[in-house]
């Protein structure tokens, strides 16, 4: 199947160089061959723009903060727990939840491509897929965190999870102080996408 082509004979060189035209060209020929239904493309785009995104992950984290049994089950078998909530799916088939504590800060990257827990966090932001993040997150996570405005104390160890297989990682950020008595909905508003990747912290109200 995939094999090496030289610069000039790679099939992509046959397409227009402008990216938008290139996508249009592929869609056109695949549609003409009956291999693509443009309405299905609209449906996929709408799904990731409006239905599947970081609110799903925030729901899981808020429940973990509120319910000790849920938290224990999530840490034991995240796949089963998110499946029960209807958050199983493509790029989230094998989930692991990792919890930030006073001693450990977790952060997720995919150095080899852009693996990310789609059903819980949606499509990754541009920076997650950037060369800079992929190259640097494993070697200098603290400098990377500083670029996100996060400074960790010396007493906290950083664990960077490089998603090299089909396992997908969800960071459970620390629950901010002063949120006792908050409802699930109030807590969800504090749980950012970045805090569930580990490049941010939950918002302090």
């Amino acid at each position: 199947m995939p094999h090496d082509h030289s610069d000039h004979d790679h099939p992509h060189a046959l397409l227009p160089s402008d990216p938008a035209l290139r996508v249009k060209a592929l869609e056109t020929i695949l549609t003409r061959k009956g291999l693509i239904d443009p309405a299905a493309l609209d449906e996929i785009i709408e799904t990731y723009e409006t239905k599947i995104g970081p609110r799903n992950g925030a729901h899981v984290v808020a429940r973990a903060w509120l319910e000790p049994d849920f938290r224990a089950a999530l840490l034991r078998d995240a796949t089963a727990v998110v499946c029960d909530l209807g958050y199983y799916g493509r790029q989230g088939e094998h989930m692991v939840a990792v919890e930030n504590t006073a001693q450990t800060h977790n952060m997720v990257v995919c150095t080899l491509c852009s693996c990310y827990p789609w059903p819980l966090l949606g499509i990754p932001p541009g920076w997650y897929k950037s060369d800079a993040y992929r190259a640097r997150a494993v070697r200098e996570p603290r400098k990377v965190l500083a670029e996100f405005g996060v400074t960790l104390p010396e007493s906290v160890a950083v664990r960077v999870w490089d998603s090299t297989a089909e396992m997908r990682y969800l960071v459970i950020p620390q629950r901010p102080e002063g949120t006792e008595g908050f409802t699930q909905a109030q807590l969800m508003d504090l749980i950012t996408r970045d805090s569930m990747i580990g490049t941010g912290l939950a918002v302090v109200p």
Binding site: V109, T111, L112, G126, A132, R134, A135, E147, F148, D194
Partner: peptide, 18 residues
């Protein structure tokens, strides 16, 4: 070429708004 973990020289990361 995709195997870039640990590489030097890529510069700063640009966070995005939520």
């Amino acid at each position: 070429v995709h195997d870039m973990g640990g590489r030097f020289g890529d510069g700063a990361i640009t966070p995005e708004a939520e």
